[in-house]
Design a protein around this nucleic acid. Structure first.
Lengths: 349, 349
DNA sequence: GTGAAAGCGCTAACAT
DNA sequence: ATGTTAGCGCTTTCAC
């Protein structure tokens, strides 16, 4: 029992394969009658068009690749979901590449950017070294970067620097002056940017930065965006025995680990140490973590929309969409203090 | 600047395209020397094999479709992750279909089971009506069902009935006698099965089932596996003004909604009403929800492994893998009572 | 070990 | 409105 092709349908309908093809691509050059007849016979025979043959002949794939190094995290799930929503409204299907380690990105690029594989690609949160950039440039189809920036490619990302700035400012406004910073792997650009924002806030408040308050991880798994890394980082910070009254973790998942580390030492959040995260993953709502919300779903939708635009042939210059993070204040950053109390009272533990 | 094909390589290497093809498929019928030469030239020219042309000629796709109606939930993310892990070790890539509503399943089947599109498919948690079964049967490639059962197809699923049984038994052992049941949409088979387990536990304990304690939703979105549905269901249960001392929600996400409903009425978990969920999603650990853990990652890995087996040509009879859920006891189901206190003391609110 | 040639199932000129 | 035919880029007999 071999698969049924347009030849079978053509035979049975007493027409040529070209007509069958036309019927399926609803070309205006088939009479309604024959089209209906053909479609009927196809139905009857259980015909299924052959995707590969189709894209080969059309010189165009109807797949879009999403390359996501860390799909384990809720953040990416939400973004992906936004992507799905948009893509599923289109003629395209979504091919998802994901892997637990950053090194695998190259392998994924290799496959996902295969010629004839997909019509375009979305690349998530991967550090762009020259080799990867070269590969992206060789790829003749449109690429949109998500949670990532490079001048040569369309992108959509959160304003991470501003987010870091808002996080630190929030704590400063509340009167905290010894704000620890839990960064991720130093290779992570978003982490760096959030850190820059943290520094800017300190400059604006004219508060000297104590480098001992800033810690980062060597962990490569998910670039250190893990609960374990957060726990380890917070622990190392507490071990230093340097005064500290609050902490900004560059991601919620790390903040969760940090909170555990704090509580494991018999201290409380926010009583002893106030805590602010970044992302606003689902859990944060339940554990009352103050954080900077990234519009995840929106990011996904916008990225997909940008890509679809390019696939429709839009030749506009490279576009960069920067979305603003918003402060979501919950109890982990301490009870709200009276608005204008900017006294530099210290909050040491 | 047209894409480079094997013809270009053949020209430059002064060999036929057949030899180039052999070189890439590391056939034993090319001399090591010419192969190396060809590979070198290919590298130099930036050659990329054309995926569609390849699968067309080979009569075999290297894609595997995963059809997931509700990828929004953490449960599916974890399962998908297990799938990814296995799949990425193989020669296949993963095509992901997902949509927010159950109705969309048919559209996804239409695309995902396209001939020539994928070499096999994983179908998640979708009610199987005769039409869908017919479509699966027409599909000439292997299919593995996940979180789903049908005699004709390979499957991997949790023992939901047993899970429901364990959940209810756990509460009964603790002395609760008025156990509310928050089901999902009645079309959901897992929900039904968990309910059956709940009933069996009551029979074994010889406790009459009070039907007023059992509520289900009409919600179709995600089959009622949402926080909102949990909230609404719990509220309706409390409105009934029927004695109740504990609740088994057929999913953690619903349990979260239920907890909110309980707390919104000024009652506490587990003080006034004990709570047990199902799944063990990530949040549950943080909010101390007692639940029945499904081995999500494992399910994904096993499903992918089963599919890969079939793709390797394994012709063994249909296989069904049933995984056991495990009780994860946290504080939401009340403090542990002394083991053998089976007195039928009532725990009314 | 290598080449010639015939497809894989479809689309898209070009005819009629 | 329909048919003929030449590909799309690759794999795979079958010769040599």
């Amino acid at each position: 029992m071999d698969a049924v092709t347009i030849y079978d349908i053509a035979d049975k309908a007493k027409v040529s394969i070209a007509t069958v093809s036309r019927a399926f691509n609803n070309s205006s050059r088939v009479s309604a009658r024959t089209r209906d007849r053909i479609l009927g016979i196809a139905q009857e025979l259980g015909y299924q068009p052959h995707a590969s043959a189709r894209s080969l002949a059309k010189r165009k794939s109807n797949l879009v690749s999403a390359i996501i190094p860390m799909l384990t995290s809720y953040f990416f799930l939400e973004v992906l979901h936004g992507v799905q929503e948009k893509i599923s409204e289109s003629e395209y299907d979504l091919l998802v590449y994901s892997a637990p380690r950053m090194e695998n990105v190259d392998g994924m690029l290799e496959n996902g950017l295969n010629r004839g594989r997909s019509a375009g690609a979305l690349l998530f949160s991967s550090p762009l070294n020259p080799e990867r950039i070269k590969r992206l440039e060789q790829y003749s189809n449109p690429v949109v970067l998500v949670d990532l920036y490079h001048e040569k490619f369309d992108s959509v990302a959160t304003d991470n620097e501003q987010g870091g700035y808002l996080a630190a400012s929030h704590l400063l406004e509340k009167g905290y002056r010894r704000i620890g910073l839990l960064a991720a792997n130093l290779d992570s650009v978003p982490s760096q940017q959030r850190m820059n924002g943290y520094c800017r806030a300190h400059r604006e408040w004219d508060i000297a930065l104590d480098e001992r308050l800033v810690v980062s991880t060597d962990d490569d798994q998910f670039h250190g965006f893990t609960e374990e890394a957060g726990y380890a980082l917070m622990s190392s910070l507490l071990d230093k025995d340097v005064a500290i009254d609050s902490v900004f973790a560059v991601s919620d998942i790390q903040a969760l680990g940090a909170r555990r580390a704090i509580e494991d030492r018999g201290m409380a959040v926010p009583g002893d140490i106030a805590l602010v995260g970044f992302d606003d993953i689902m859990i944060s709502r339940y554990v009352e973590l103050t954080t900077l919300r990234q519009p995840m779903n929106e990011m996904g939708r916008m990225a997909a929309e940008l890509l679809l635009e390019r696939l429709r042939g839009n030749e506009k210059p490279v576009m960069h969409k920067i979305l603003a993070p918003t402060l979501v204040e919950r109890t982990s950053s301490g009870s709200r203090r009276t608005g204008t109390d900017l006294s530099k009272s210290s909050h040491n533990i």
